[in-house]
Nucleic acid binder design. Structure first.
Lengths: 201, 201
DNA sequence: CTTATAAAAAATGTATACATTTTATTTTGG
DNA sequence: CCAAAATAAAATGTATACATTTTTTATAAG
């Protein structure tokens, strides 16, 4: 139930602003209201739903200010996590990261696919830091962004540029150039954020 | 129910590591398991409970690594938010912040009281940034820390030093010295974090 | 016609009962 | 005696039924 509703939200099958009622969801997914309530609680915490006054939940509208804040946070936290990871990077990890980049160059990927692979690429590096709390937070912020990028073709337009940045980052990591790697990641996030905010305004 | 369980967790009435079962909680609080489930879901997201295998939830053990990560994040995010707030600060806001500092000097405050007032002081400034998403995140990180500071007398030992730092910060904000205010806040967080990590190890 | 109040409808919160899954115990074979 | 499988117990997940709260609609007064 939770997974089905989340999938529908991720696929954009409910327009932003739509108000969802427990009873209606229960009937739609052929379950009782108990699992619906659980799912709603979880999805509210993940940012896929918001309270709608005292009754009902709504699919959040696109909010450029929210995106701006999330990208600001990512710019501060992801380079930090990457720096902490650098000491533990090795050829195997970097090889796996490159494999993901190769997959990202495939044809027929949806915006959601690209978003997921993009996260897998960075996560692969971040995980080496062995910092579960910081990692979870960064993952949470990434996934909040996916709500926005799933909808539009922006990620497809920026795909070639993004790939080039990924390869440049990978090279810096291979060389062990921490300052360059941090700067490249920061710019990578900044550009994606600015493009998304421009698109929303 | 949610509020009662949270209060008990905040007051440290369940030792870290304790495993809690829905049925036991339901009987203890004289409610059915449905509100217990809701409360558990919410408290897991707030960091007051964690999953315990496939069955039950546990009161999390104290984890110095988690604290270290949270303070690292706070050091990156709070100065950012404060900088964004500075343009909108005025005498009224700064006056309210000072009022809170005066309350913090009262006698007979518990560690939890001081923690709450400490947050109110900074929140009062942060709110001026009018950045709800960033603010929520910073608030979330603050409240995660309260789980640790509620337990021990550390906050009481650092109270006078902390107050001095608060006043220095307030002065920098009054003067509009952004660089100094950021630096003071960063150090303020860093010192509190280091003290807490030292205590836990 | 607008506003305030009252009744009706709808939505959420909670209790009880049952189903499914997980964990603990016992039994059996080596 | 130990390990693995089977059984019993316990815990969580879910459905139905009812209680409380919120929202909407209808009604009446100004």
């Amino acid at each position: 139930m939770y997974h089905k509703l989340k999938a529908d939200l991720q696929a954009g099958r409910f327009a932003p602003g739509t108000v969802l009622k427990q009873k209606a969801l229960a009937e739609h997914y052929q379950v009782s209201r108990i699992p619906v309530r659980d799912a709603i609680l979880r999805l509210k915490n993940e940012g896929w739903l918001t309270d709608h006054g005292k009754c009902g939940v709504a699919v959040p509208e696109f909010d450029a200010n929210e995106v701006e804040d999330i990208y600001l946070m990512r710019m501060r936290l992801e380079p930090l996590l990457q720096e902490l990871a650098m000491a533990n990077l090795n050829a195997e990890i970097l090889g796996r990261a490159e494999d993901i980049l190769i997959k990202m160059a495939s044809d027929g990927l949806t915006a959601a696919d690209i978003g997921e692979l993009n996260w897998q690429f960075h996560a692969c590096i971040f995980r080496a830091a062995a910092r579960p709390t910081l990692f979870s937070m960064v993952e949470h912020l990434h996934r909040q962004c996916q709500r926005y990028i799933g909808y539009q073709s922006l990620s497809l337009n920026y795909q070639s540029r993004s790939q080039a940045e990924h390869h440049a980052l990978l090279n810096a990591l291979r060389k062990g150039d921490a300052a360059l790697a941090s700067q490249l990641l920061s710019e990578h996030i900044s550009e994606a954020g600015q493009a998304l905010v421009r698109f929303l305004r």
